[in-house]
């Protein structure tokens, strides 16, 4: 398990790739023809290796990969940058232990913030309190107590979250307020470890 997590270290998330893609002007100009013709156009994928669908080749500027199209971006939460002097801070500690301190506006929720800043937090139900993929662990107990109490619905979803703790919450349900300035949350470790017991149960 640990090696799998290690392998993911430094891998850009899909959203990050999207923004990288947007910064490549020549790629942006490429017309979207039918998917198969683009994807199977060997030249556009990995030059000289027509058959190799998954390439070992590192990405160089002469070989820009095609990532997700621009329209994908709109699906992610859009947050306005905070006005000077009014910013609140929230820190995400990701699965690798890296800290991301972000200046945000009052009223933003942690899921939208995370998605707008390429922090690896899924939001499978898009903030409808119906999945638990946006599970976060609030680092400080005192801070946890300052967050308005979770509803039954939120607690019901949390009960299904992997690695539930005393200070677990759903990211999509935490809305930033001045009281929460300086909030620090951890993303619970990567994958549910599929142990043999899962099979034994039946």
């Amino acid at each position: 398990m640990s090696s799998a997590i290690a392998a993911s270290r430094g891998m850009p998330s899909l959203t990050k790739l999207t923004s990288l893609y947007l910064r490549v002007p020549s790629a942006k100009a490429a017309p979207l023809r039918s998917f198969s013709s683009i994807a199977r156009n060997p030249g556009s994928l990995c030059p000289g290796k027509p058959g190799n669908l998954i390439s070992h080749k590192p990405w160089t500027t002469s070989n820009p990969p095609r990532y997700f199209s621009a329209s994908a971006v709109s699906l992610h939460g859009h947050v306005d940058p905070p006005k000077a002097g009014e910013e609140l801070y929230v820190t995400f500690i990701d699965k690798e232990g890296d800290e991301h301190k972000i200046a945000v506006n009052k009223g933003d929720n942690l899921l939208t913030i995370a998605q707008a800043h390429d922090i690896e937090m899924e939001g499978a139900c898009e903030g409808s309190c119906a999945c638990s993929t946006c599970h976060v662990v609030v680092e400080d107990e005192e801070m946890f107590d300052k967050i308005p109490e979770a509803t039954d619905d939120e607690n019901d979803m949390l009960d299904l979250a992997f690695g539930l703790t005393e200070t677990s919450r759903l990211g999509c349900q935490i809305v930033m307020t001045p009281e929460l300035d300086g909030l620090r949350v951890k993303l619970p470790s990567a994958t549910r470890n599929m142990q043999a017991s899962n099979f034994g149960k039946k």
Binding site: P12, S13, L14, L17, C46, L53, I54, S55, P65
Partner: peptide, 8 residues
Amino acid sequence: MSKIENSV
């Protein structure tokens, strides 16, 4: 797709 660049 996000971990293996150029994967199809």
